[in-house]
Design a protein around this nucleic acid. Sequence first.
DNA 1: CTGTTAGCGCCTTCAA
DNA 2: TTGAAGGCGCTAACAG
Lengths: 373, 373
Amino acid sequence: MKNRNNKAEMIQRNTTMADVALLAGVGKMTVSRVLTGSARVSAETAKRVYRAIKILHYQPNEVARSLRAVSSKTIGVIVPYLYDPFFATCAHAISTVAKQHGYSVILTTSDENPEIEQKQTSLMLRRQVDGLVVIPVSDNGRYYSGEAFSRVHVVTVDRPAPGSRFDSVLVPNRAGARTAVEHLLGHGHRSIAFLGLSRTLYTMTARYAGYREAMSDAGHSPDPYIDCGSPERTVALIRSMMNGRKPPTALFAANNLCMRYALRALSAAGIQIPRQIAVAGFDDFEMADVLQPSLTVIRQPIYQLGEVAANLLFQRISGSEASKAGHRLFLPVELVVRCSCGCQPRVPRAAKEERPAPATPPGQPNDPAPSDR
Amino acid sequence: MKNRNNKAEMIQRNTTMADVALLAGVGKMTVSRVLTGSARVSAETAKRVYRAIKILHYQPNEVARSLRAVSSKTIGVIVPYLYDPFFATCAHAISTVAKQHGYSVILTTSDENPEIEQKQTSLMLRRQVDGLVVIPVSDNGRYYSGEAFSRVHVVTVDRPAPGSRFDSVLVPNRAGARTAVEHLLGHGHRSIAFLGLSRTLYTMTARYAGYREAMSDAGHSPDPYIDCGSPERTVALIRSMMNGRKPPTALFAANNLCMRYALRALSAAGIQIPRQIAVAGFDDFEMADVLQPSLTVIRQPIYQLGEVAANLLFQRISGSEASKAGHRLFLPVELVVRCSCGCQPRVPRAAKEERPAPATPPGQPNDPAPSDR
DNA sequence: CTGTTAGCGCCTTCAA
DNA sequence: TTGAAGGCGCTAACAG
């Protein structure tokens, strides 16, 4: 007799299917069938099984299931940071979709570090995830084309997939930046500064390209890329820029972080927006409409990026998607005209929520800001 | 002979330890020992094993390990929302600590919904997590005292644990609110409005209590709790409040969401801060110092909340913590005086980061790093 | 130092 | 409709 049935020493072991089977007076398989519905069981025995389950507070061990089954019902998610609302919102969307599919999410942050990303990815694969949604660190292309990925589905978000086998859900960075810069040009600005972060970031170079295009097409020469490495650096750069021979009359911040740095720097230098310098940015955020002046920005469908990516992944997982090649999906961005560019939207600053916020179920109609002209 | 060694039908199976053992000409246990270091293996055979591992691209199956071992090396994390920077930052901290311990994190959102929380918790337990860090939904007390939790460690963050067996890492909400309100009182305000969200939230009632204390102790009568259910509602409430017989001269927003609503509403009503109404809030946030006027707030050590909670959990998991009763840890908050209260801080608005931001190892001098979009 | 045996808890396969 | 045997991949416990 197995000692596990020896009640004398049943210290703290979890109750298993065998326990349920014993109590219900049936075989383990019957319990399994009742739970999974994989085959018909007489109503009579099913009832007995349920009763035993309840009495014993039995909970199936999903780890054992994962080991036995082909699928672990788990996906992995890797984002650079979680305290960045953009990434966090993506993660939230992915998590929500996963929940709808009955999947669990193993989540981690890469801190924008290729080594961490590799290590964590590898750990997830060892944990037998069925798929991966990643906002990949720039230079991990070689890794992702390794053989380890032959059996797992991968979708990247916000940045294109390193290998070409994976799907990516992106945003038209170049076109978006271009639109914003063209709007500034429409205000008559001819010298527009471009503020970005590390140029190793995919989005930064794409947005700079859009900026250059807009400038060149308008017959103006693009300014050099300004890398706001740190707040201090940004202060110094902006100060010297504004004190230079030909200070720009407008400024495009390629993401929220540079926007924040830039705003602090301008404010510290006592420079007025939009009177002394017009401002536009890429990526909307909470408070962008509460700032004085409210900020004109390119809004990205953040939640939808994650949502679409996750849905794509589950399509692949369920195998309904036959194609082997990776696709690139682009979700549209939108110019939200507010005041920092020099516009005076008719409805001054309506007191309404413009972005999904805690209480607002995501993915709802966006009630875009009033845009004039 | 097992058919799994029949090469003819090795379609796509993962390589296992048996494959490695076979190729290296050793037993499975030797391979296991080499990998885990659980026992000495001669350098010679170890080398052979490593070679086989490399040739076959062998990766141990963590699911099988979890099934076999007592621990799954996995913890569960449940937060209400991920697009709320507060929760996301906590989650980031927890994830970081988990990474340091070689643990994976299964993360999900409860959407502030007790049923979802229960379902997801239960799923995590079935997945054999070694512990749980939760920002619990208010009214799930009974659930958490169930027997299912007898074998798992739980630490709650931001809100106290329902049962008394769990540790909680909290912030002095009452005292913090009190400090902020006292600061407003110090400016000579006698009528101060309190804006909050749903009173079912623990933090809201605690902060309201602090507000009432401060008011009463100063000999003024507290105003009734104003629940900013939605932006629209907030606009209406603020409008009627300001048009009432005795409009308040100051306002305390109990968290960021009401702060945002309030700012929008005030701005829509054309009310000047701090001239017509002074403002203070609970919880600092990016941009709070860039707003005009910059906001006076109570700052919470968000990242540390998650960090401490996770470390507490791992202490419990490793069993070095014997005590069975749950403890409540309070991390200090801090009044950050800016301009919205009517103060004129000497350093006008220095261009420096005031909060932990990207890439800043927690608790370190701040130097935010690139986040990309 | 190394190999064998025996499960972890579940479900696929086959037999009754 | 139900049950028994066997194995998913790994490691504790015991040989040798």
